[in-house]
Design a protein around this nucleic acid. Structure first.
Lengths: 323, 323
DNA sequence: CTGAAAGCGCTTACAG
DNA sequence: CTGAAAGCGCTTACAG
């Protein structure tokens, strides 16, 4: 058996309370006493049992991160910075990919209630009953759960409109939109709204395919779009995977990029991952991640936070728009 | 305060042991009793406290996954399947990215000792003292910790040799190797060994750059290589990120691929992530992940396992080698 | 089939 | 500054 606090106390000839105070680095311990305890701990190769202190303190210091899939550039990058930021505050991240088993999403709520984790980040689009997560420390991205759930988003509407205006300025005449629609009310929908509004303003016809799909199922959407609107010479693609699939499809179908087809995507600047540089609206993923953790920790502490946080995107020129 | 097992017992008019048996779905409970308990649980909106049962059972049902960075296609894909497989066995995955703070690697060992997690997957290259992780349930990838630590790897040597032979057959005359060397003894080193052996067999000069670098620092290595061996017309690149950087660098420097420069990489088939298809040796990441979890759970249960598991790679033709 | 009780390994008032 | 004791919310022999 691993040594317990009792063994340390006995060996050091002190009470267990004193050992606990040494472990938790509280001031009120005499120097010689502390040394005795420290020696005993070393000698026994003692490690304090976290499960016990968790139970006593009613804190796990764990947050759950819920993503549809982790092997996706956006979610992976977000996870990277969330983990990094959480670590700074002594929290670790429990990773949950929900796409294979959607029940995992609602299970997270139980996990908070069961005190397996202190809180959770929801980066998913499953529909939930508002009441279920009442009083649960949760932060989300893009989507509007309810007033109780703070979320971080980017300036979807403005950024999309600006990007489309740029493309039109560069000569695109038949402009389309392709996206994978979230299941629930989310600010991601503002991207298509911006597109539609701009088409109206410019008196251009709407050529849009925006459907609910799973990650990994992008090809179907792209094929639909290409069959429906083969004449398109400029497209706004909402999402990184989709833009990669679209790019490939366009090239394979003999189109020259950007001459025959200009492409701008929402998300796309993941230099490590890919050689292609698609002109894109880049979300400030790092900043979003840090803000999310910041909000979540406040929630866990019971502090009040703002509901909506909007961060600015950056327009990045690549090789898929004309000069 | 959240209701406890005591509250449920009182409301149902039974003992707390009985409630516990209902929670844990043990058979030995009468139907009417169970119903009473279930009703009380529902009425109180009761969730069993996991921290308490963990402490009693001395199990967390959590495994730690230690990677240098999660936002990398290989690690992200591995994480995806590890999470999926672990979930099947009732385990969840604690995500730890160690590159920003290397101490995290050794902290994992303490976390096992402290019973924060039941075991860990090490996908990193930091050097550790063998004795430290003695008796800790740990599984690794590619690297040889010690006999106590099982690991999963791929047929690095054979796959690399075969790939290089293919490239030479397709006309490469000045063949180089570029890789990021692991810090510790790892089967990844077999890739360079295979290259060097083959060069000897073929009587071709060795043109190799193989250094220790951090993820995100690939450009320097590629530049080194290009400056040192500008004459190269075929290269084996060990690792996905490196291959992407290399590809881009080659194109930017005016080389036509595959005419002026053939490229084969170890890792590379991540279709979702990138449009480019580099000819590559593809590791069976899903299979590796599932095997890792399988081994780790056996270790946690105290069963003995084989130390080394080798899985077969697949050679995937892309557009970076000649027809 | 079920209840009362001990105990998992800690933390934290409470005295002194 | 320090010890003895209660208690966090469960699980699990032990009786019955």
């Amino acid at each position: 058996m691993a040594p317990t606090i009792k063994d340390v106390a006995k060996k050091a000839g002190v009470g267990i309370g004193t050992v606990s105070r040494v472990i938790n680095k509280q001031k009120a311990v005499g120097d010689k006493t502390r040394d005795k305890v420290l020696d005993a701990m070393k000698e026994l190769n003692y490690s304090p049992n976290k499960m016990a202190s968790q139970l006593r303190k009613n804190k796990t210091k764990i947050i759950a991160l819920l993503v549809p899939v982790i092997n996706h550039p956006f979610f992976a990058k977000l996870a990277y910075f969330i983990e990094d930021e959480a670590d700074k505050f002594g929290y670790t991240v429990l990773l949950v990919s929900s796409q294979q088993r959607v029940e995992k999403e609602v299970e997270i709520i139980s996990r908070i209630k069961r005190r397996e984790v202190d809180g959770a980040v929801f980066v998913t689009h499953f529909m939930h009953d508002e009441k279920v997560f009442k009083d649960c420390p949760i932060v989300s991205i893009d989507r509007t759960f309810s007033k109780d759930v703070p979320y971080v988003t980017s300036n979807n509407y403005d950024a999309t409109k600006k990007a489309l205006e740029y493309m039109i300025e560069k000569g695109a005449k038949k402009v389309g939109f392709i996206g994978s629609k979230p299941l629930v009310e989310s600010e991601v929908m503002d991207r298509e709204r911006a597109y539609i509004d701009l088409m109206k303003e410019k008196n251009m016809p709407v050529r849009s395919v925006n459907e609910i799909i799973l990650h990994g199922d992008e090809s179907r959407l792209v094929n639909d779009f290409m069959n429906k609107y083969p004449e398109v010479d400029g497209v706004f693609v909402s999402g990184y995977s989709l833009s990669q699939v679209f790019y490939k499809n366009a090239v394979d179908s003999g189109r020259k990029i950007p001459d025959d087809m200009q492409i701008i995507s929402y998300d796309g600047e993941f230099t490590q991952w890919s050689v292609n540089q698609i002109t894109c609206v880049e979300q400030p993923i790092e900043e979003m991640a840090r803000k999310i953790v910041d909000l979540l920790i406040k929630k866990i502490r019971g502090e009040t936070t703002q509901t909506r946080t909007v961060l600015e995107t950056r327009f990045v020129l690549g090789s898929t728009t004309k000069k």
